[in-house]
Design a protein around this nucleic acid. Sequence first.
DNA 1: TGTACATCAGTGAACGCGCGTTCACTGATGTAC
DNA 2: TGTACATCAGTGAACGCGCGTTCACTGATGTAC
Lengths: 205, 205
Amino acid sequence: VPATRAQIGQQKRERTRATLIAAAMRVFARLGPDAPTIDHFVEEAGLAKGTFYNHFETRDELLIAVASIVSDQLISEMLRIRTLSDPAERVGRAVRTFVRKAVSDPTWGWIIVRIALIAAPLGEEMRENLSIDINDGLKQGRFQSPSLQAAYDLVLGLGLMGMRSVLRGDAGVDHAEHVAQLVLAALAVPDAKEVAYRPIGPAAT
Amino acid sequence: VPATRAQIGQQKRERTRATLIAAAMRVFARLGPDAPTIDHFVEEAGLAKGTFYNHFETRDELLIAVASIVSDQLISEMLRIRTLSDPAERVGRAVRTFVRKAVSDPTWGWIIVRIALIAAPLGEEMRENLSIDINDGLKQGRFQSPSLQAAYDLVLGLGLMGMRSVLRGDAGVDHAEHVAQLVLAALAVPDAKEVAYRPIGPAAT
DNA sequence: TGTACATCAGTGAACGCGCGTTCACTGATGTAC
DNA sequence: TGTACATCAGTGAACGCGCGTTCACTGATGTAC
């Protein structure tokens, strides 16, 4: 089928928008949520300044777009892990996966570390999803914790700090497993080390 | 003794500087390290804009001054705790003290949470001091951890996230003890709960 | 088939506000005589 | 004791750069005939 003018235009628009968002991710990862200027984004993207305003009204709108994409990736990862039946394995796998992903995709990792706790949507999604898994473990007696909130602080705090360490190059190759092991040990999982190192195969229920 | 003109001037200067720094602490606590402008600081302090430049050359210099003060307070607190002989009690006490202090002095707490990981001196001081206590515990066999770095991420990550929870009003009255207990449990301290709740008396060696 | 036209994403010069920075001035207070 | 002077922290108006924002224009590409 021949492309109509409208279709061609839309495709170009979408490609430019994607270029801009990809550039914005690198910039936010490098400079954090507050410091970057419009010039930072368009220069990184290799586009004219006016182009920014063809796609976004404000700098904040771009930050939200970036946060939404990262948030969606987080959620889909959490949902894949949810197919595992053991809450300990779910929480351990989540921590381990995110720390490993920070190694393989530092831009993604720095965005999480630098804006995770600031951009509202991102933080809330993480919170909701984590709370489900932690609650499951507590109800089943697989976890012990003096409170849900403390367990939540444990997983999010140690997870983020573990990501930060590997991003800064301060940690060894097994850091993801080490961090997962400590999380599970804190929650009084007896086989914490075994679960933390369990090979990642096809999701077994 | 009658005050000389030079002394009077110096005293006034010091008072103004203190006013400015106290105002800057509230502003940094509220807005983070990047967002505030010079106008924010002088308005909060009730001073003229030019006065800022009588005391600091740049916005960054003020941030460093604030970070230094907070850092000094952190270190002196850590040094007081160092008089305790049991590494488990030292680490637990440190975490507990900082979370409690975030409750009683939210401005101080928010500064730690918002700029702890950004302002270099602050992060390094915390790192050095924590590493000493953690290393002691590992060498003495009081702690178990797959790596020093992971244990460090645990204490700093859970500590900061615990502070953040109480600052946001998301946690109960015993949150400091809950967080300390989880830290010690993660490090395989058998009497984690007992140590976390041990009354804070005069430092016993 | 070829040519003139319509559409629209992208462009970048121009504008103007906000914020960092300067500096001549004020006023409080000790000092000189 | 009283008065003129010196010093210096603090003041705030003024300046100008940087950055957000606008908009007339360009050029690529499909459409009309």
